[in-house]
């Protein structure tokens, strides 16, 4: 699915990622944990194609394609999804209209016809119910005056409607209360299957109680310093980043 080799990334001359390797296979859930400034969010932006990041070295293979050569929207339509840490507000654009536009952009890219209105309404309704999102909210402008929790649920709704092959969750747990965390995690778990993969970026082990990863990686200073299974997250919780990084 995703194969990152020797990735070096800088922003405005400052080196952020310094030789990162990561391989994610179909059907796997990987957790990426690390302290602030370790390069976690940078990795999510580089994978999704945001500007301003300079790739100094390395390769990223995505399903046999050179990911770095694809535009942002091509990556998205090829099934790469980023659940934003800070989802953007788009005033004047109804949430449901945005969802429909996104779905149809993907269908157009794949050479399919637009989803008809009824089919779309059904899909949106069932997915929204799963996430406890009211239909009233879908009529509001996208993310405008949403609470932090509502914004995160909205990200998961978009994810479940677009059913990506490779989903990156960038600190989706931040700002969520325990109920919202549970609902969001259930949304993710429902989506898990043997064909798709997840990269869950988080500070805390708490989220991983709900979304059980197959692999846990610890990133420090732009490199993965330790990888393991779920027990690594527990060990980290106990010892803290500093000690883990030193023993690596």
């Amino acid at each position: 699915m995703l194969e990152i080799k020797n990735l070096h990334v800088s922003i405005e001359e400052k080196k952020i990622i310094k030789g990162l390797d990561l391989s994610i296979n179909k059907g796997e859930v990987h957790a990426l944990m690390g302290p602030n400034g370790s390069g976690k969010s940078t990795l999510s932006y580089v994978l999704s194609g945001k500007d301003k990041y300079e790739i100094n070295d390395g390769t990223i293979d995505y399903n046999g394609k050179n990911l770095l050569e694809l535009d942002v929207d091509e990556r998205a339509n090829e099934g790469l999804f980023l659940a934003f840490q800070y989802p953007m507000e788009i005033p004047g654009v109804q949430t449901s209209f945005f969802l429909k536009t996104a779905i149809n952009s993907k269908r157009k890219y794949l050479g399919q016809s637009e989803m008809d209105a009824l089919e779309f309404a059904k899909l949106m309704k069932s997915k929204a119910e799963e996430l406890n999102i009211s239909t009233e909210m879908l009529k509001r402008d996208l993310n405008v005056n949403y609470s932090g929790g509502e914004k995160k649920k909205q990200e998961i709704l978009q994810m479940s409607m677009l059913s990506p092959k490779m989903a990156i969750l960038d600190e989706t747990d931040s700002g969520l209360d325990i109920d919202a965390l549970r609902i969001v995690s259930e949304g993710v778990n429902k989506l898990r299957n043997s064909d798709n993969s997840f990269l869950v970026i988080t500070h805390y082990q708490r989220l991983l109680n709900y979304i059980k990863p197959d692999f846990v990686h610890i990133i420090a200073d732009g490199k993965i310093v330790k990888s393991g299974d779920y027990s690594l997250a527990l060990e980290l919780e106990e010892k803290g980043y500093e000690e883990i990084s030193q023993t690596a």
Binding site: S48, D73, L82, I90, T101, K106, Q158
Partner: peptide, 20 residues
């Protein structure tokens, strides 16, 4: 960037935001 990450090309993204 947010709109493009959802699959809209840059022109559609601008059109959407301006229409909003």
């Amino acid at each position: 960037f947010y709109c493009q990450q959802r699959g809209l090309n840059s022109e559609d993204a601008v059109g959407l935001i301006v229409n909003g």
